[in-house]
Amino acid sequence: MLAYIIRRLLTTIPVLVVVGLFTFFLLRLTPGDPAAVIAGNEATHEEYLEIRERLGLDAPLYVQLGKWAGRIVQGDFGTSIRSGKPVFDLVRGRIGPSVSLTIATELVAVLVAIPLGVLAAWKANSLIDRSVMVFAAVGFSVPIFWLGFIMIWVFGLWAFGLDNPILPVAGYVKIGDDLWEYVRHLILPAFSLGLVVIALIARMTRASVLEVLKEDYVRTARAKGIAEPAILIRHALRNASLPILTVVGLSLAGLLSGAVVTESVFAIPGLGRLAVEAIATRDYPIIQAMIILIGGFYVFINLAVDILYAFLDPRIRY
C-alpha cells in the first residue's frame, strides 16, 4: 500500500512539471507586454527599459524560466505586477471564500444527488426515474450564471420585495464574523453552482447503482427478506461507491472553474474573481500562480481519490 502511494505520488511529478512549463510559456509568449502596460503612454523609452529590467523581463527566456521555477518550488510566486504585493498574500486572502463556496456546493450536491440517483435506479424506468434524468439533463444545460440570475431574481428580489430579500444576493461574510450570515450568504451561490454537479453525481449514482442491483447478491438479499432501504444502502450504494467517489472528486476540482463565474455573479471576493481581475490586467504572476494552484489541486484530488479506492474496496490491491 505504501509502495503504491509512493509510486502514485511520483507519477504526479511529470504532470506538475508540464503544467508549470505550459503556464510559463503560455503567458510569456503573449502579445501583451506588461512592462509597456505599467509604463503607460507617458513613459520614455529609458523608463520602459528600466521597468523591464526590474521585472526581469529583459533576460533570455530560459534564464527567466530557471529563476521562476526555482522560486515556485520554494513556494514563492513572486509579486503582483499591478499592486506590487506578494502573490502568495493576495491568493491567501482569497482562498477562504472560494473554499467555503466549493465545500458548500459539494455538500449540497452530494446530499441532493445521491438520494436522487439511488431513487432513480431503484425505480428504474418509472416516472420518478425519468423525472430525475430530465432534471439532470436540464442541469447540464443551464448556464451557471443564468441560474444565478434566476435565483437572485426569485429569492432575492421578486418574491419578497426589493427592500427585504429573504436571502442575501451578493457578498460574503467571514465565518469568524457571523456564522449565521456566513451560511446565509452561501446558500444561493451553492445551489446555483451546484445544479450541474447534482446532475453529474445523480447520473453516475443512478448508473452504478443500477449496475449493482442486477447482481446475484442483491437478489439473495431480497430473497432473505432484507428490507429494501437496507439493500439499497448497504448492498447497492456501498458497492456502487467507487465510480460515485470518482465523480465527486473530479467535480470538486471542476468546481473551482465554475466558481469563477459564480463568484462574479454573487460578488464573492474569491480566487475566481482574482483570476478574472488578473487576466484583465495581464498580471502574469497571479495568473501563473492560479493555474499552478488549481492544476496542483486537481492532481492532488485525483491522487486522493485513487488512494481512497484502495481503502474503500479491499479487492483493489496494488
Binding site: P14, V15, V18, L26, L256, S257, G258, I287, I291, I294
Partner: peptide
C-alpha cells in the same frame, strides 16, 4: 500522454481563460 494529463489537470474554463488572455 503526459502533456495531455497536464492539460486535463487544468479545469476547462480556467484553461480557456488563460489561453484567451494570452492570445487576446
Amino acid at each position: 500522454q503526459r502533456l495531455m494529463d497536464a492539460l486535463m489537470s487544468i479545469p476547462t474554463l480556467i484553461l480557456a481563460m488563460a489561453i484567451t488572455a494570452a492570445l487576446g
